Simulated assay, not measured.
Amino acid sequence: MSVLGSGEIAARVAAVRERVGRACARVGRDPAEVRLIAASKTFGPEAVVEALAAGVTDFGENRVQEALGKQAAVAELAAVRGLSAPTWHLVGHLQSNKARAAVGAFAILHGIDSVRLLDVLDRWAPGRPVRVLLEVNVAGEPTKFGLAPSELPAAVARARGLVGVELVGLMTVAPRVADPEEVRPVFRRLAALARDHGLRELSMGMTDDFEVAIEEGASMVRVGRAIFGGRR
C-alpha cells in the first residue's frame, strides 16, 4: 500500500490542481498549459499508481537506477487496474555514464547541464531525437547543478546542431526560501532566457513555489511533497 493511501493521494492531487487553476486565473492562463509532474523520487510503485488513478499522467524521477525498476512495477500494476502507463521525466542531474539507460527510459530529460552531456546523448539517441531541457542555475548557487546564464547561448547552439537531440526548453531549481515571492525573480529570469532563445517549455516550480512559477510562465511544475507527503 502507498504511504498515504489511495483516498488521500487523490485528495492531494485535486488540491494541487485547484492551486494550479487559481494561479493560472490570477494571470489569465489556461490550466491546460501547465503540465503537472508528480515528483515520485523515493516513493514506491503503489503510490505512483494511486496518483496515476487520480489523473496524473506525468511522473518525475531523480535517479536513473531507481526509476528503472519502479517503471516496470508501475506498468504491471497499472495494467492490472486498466490504467495507461505514465509518461516519465528525468528531473534530476544526469551523469554521463547513465545517459545510455536514460534515453530509453524517459520521455524528457530536464537536467541537462553541459555541452559534453549533449554530445553523449546525441551518441546514444535511439533512432529518434532525445527531448531535453537545459538546466540553468539562475541564482548562481554553488551547490546546484546547471549552466550559468552566460553559458546558455553556446549550449543552445550546440543542442540545435545535433541530430539526436531535440531542445524543447529550460529548467531551473530555485533556492529554498521561506517566502516564495523571494524566488519570483529567478522564474522571471528563466522565462526571459527562454524567450530570448525561442524556447517554449519552462520546467520550474516545486511544492513550495509552483504557484509563483506558474504566474511567471511555467509550463511544467514538479510537485512531490504536496502529492505524496513527506519523503521517506
Rank of each mutant, 00 (worst) to 15 (best):
E141Y: 06
R22D: 09
T57I: 10
A39P: 09
R116C: 05
L162C: 06
A39T: 09
P153H: 11
K144A: 05
G229H: 14
T87G: 08
H197V: 08
I214L: 08
E61F: 07
G161W: 11
K98A: 02
T57Q: 14
V13F: 05
E76D: 14
L4G: 04
A85G: 12
T207G: 12
A10H: 03
P142S: 14
E61P: 09
G217P: 09
M206C: 09
F43I: 10
A155S: 11
G169L: 01
T207L: 11
S203Q: 08
A178P: 07
V186I: 12
V163A: 15
A148C: 11
D113S: 15
F106I: 02
A226G: 09
G229V: 14
E76M: 03
R160N: 14
A15L: 02
V27W: 11
V138K: 04
V163W: 00
D30K: 13
R22K: 14
L68G: 05
A101V: 02
A85T: 13
L134H: 07
V138M: 03
P126E: 01
R176K: 13
S219W: 09
K144Q: 01
N62C: 12
G82S: 13
E216I: 15
R123M: 07
A14D: 08
S6I: 15
D113H: 10
E216G: 15
G198H: 01
G161A: 09
A139D: 09
R176C: 13
M206Q: 02
R35C: 15
G198K: 10
A107S: 15
L134R: 07
D119K: 15
R19L: 11
P31E: 07
A107E: 14
K41I: 06
M1W: 01
V177S: 04
R81S: 11
A39W: 06
F43V: 10
A218K: 14
A32V: 07
R131C: 09
F210L: 10
N97F: 06
L162M: 02
G82A: 13
L83V: 09
V186Y: 05
I9Y: 04
C24G: 04
P45F: 05
D179L: 11
I227E: 10
E181P: 03
V173E: 10
A174G: 10
W124G: 01
G82N: 13
K98D: 00
E211V: 13
S40H: 00
S84P: 10
L134M: 05
G55D: 00
